[in-house]
Simulated assay, not measured.
Amino acid sequence: MLCFTACGSAQKDDETEYNESAIEQTTEFMIQYCTNADEAMRKEFRNMKELKLDFQLMQSGIPITAESFLGALNAWEAAEEECGEYKSHGDFTSEITNEGYKLSANAKFADREATISFIFDDKSYMESMTVDAKYSMGEILAKAGMNTVLGMGTVFVVLIFISFLISQFKVIPALFGSKKKEEPASAPVVSGPSSVLETVETQETDDTELIAVIAAAIAAAREEAGMDEACAGGFFVRSIRRRPANKWKA
């Protein structure tokens, strides 16, 4: 079925009758108009409403729509910027393609040559106009090399930038005002049981004479109470501790 459809569309294109005289008239009109139109006229047509422009083109008898007309103006303006001022063109050659009836001719501009192409539909209305500049092999290779250099250069620049960012990950927090690490404060000295014992032991070593006196007084009191010498001799004073103050009130 696809083969039959393709054959049917091809037969339809072959049977389509194009108004060649109207097509040639349209192509010549567009080339002459685009060549002679100045910037003010092009701006006026661009600012004109599409319906009004369609009406003026219909009155002129040129089979072209407003959209195709403005597209042709833009294509010709871009061609003049790229190829220079228009000089002349050769004979047109015609062919029927899938897009429609195509006319093309070689044209000479001030800086380089180009190919002007027109496409018409089955009603002989112009659909588009293109101007393709011709470049030499050296210019093509130069452009290809320039594109390659720009592409690879952009990639390497981006990679270098990413590597630089990664290497600065340790510095970035400091740039955003991260707090400096405070030095740990020295721990306060807390007086615990060990310090109390050390104080008591120091006091005990310093009170040797007081211990001797108290021991002698206790021994004398035991003798007066009638304790034997064995019990008295078995008593030794090893340490003296201060008794806490009495908190009871009379």
Rank of each mutant, 00 (worst) to 15 (best):
E223A: 06
T154W: 07
E223N: 01
E85D: 10
Y33D: 03
I214A: 04
D207K: 13
K247P: 13
E24R: 12
F176V: 10
A216N: 13
A185G: 05
T154G: 14
D121K: 09
D38P: 04
L159R: 08
L57T: 02
K179S: 00
V131S: 07
A78R: 04
L73M: 15
L197R: 13
T202Y: 13
A245Y: 11
D111V: 02
F236R: 07
Y101E: 10
T27A: 10
Q168E: 11
D132Q: 14
Q203I: 10
E95I: 03
R112S: 02
D14I: 13
D228F: 01
A230V: 14
S194P: 00
T130A: 11
Q56S: 13
N36Y: 10
M152F: 08
Q56L: 13
A22F: 01
A107K: 08
K43T: 08
I140T: 06
D207R: 15
M126G: 02
L103D: 03
K12G: 02
K123C: 01
F169N: 15
N106V: 00
A72N: 02
A40F: 11
T27Y: 02
S94T: 06
N74V: 07
G192F: 02
L210N: 09
F120L: 10
S186K: 15
L175K: 12
A66C: 09
K123L: 14
D207M: 09
S195G: 08
M48I: 03
I172P: 07
A225R: 14
R222H: 03
D14W: 14
V200N: 14
A174R: 09
I64H: 02
K170W: 11
P193T: 14
T199D: 14
F176G: 02
E24P: 04
I96K: 13
T148A: 13
V131I: 12
A72S: 11
V157N: 06
V149W: 06
T202A: 14
N147H: 10
R238G: 06
A221P: 00
G234D: 15
A250W: 02
L141T: 04
K12P: 01
A142T: 03
E50G: 00
F164I: 09
K87S: 07
I119D: 12
A144K: 11
E204P: 02
T5H: 02
Q203Y: 05
A216S: 13
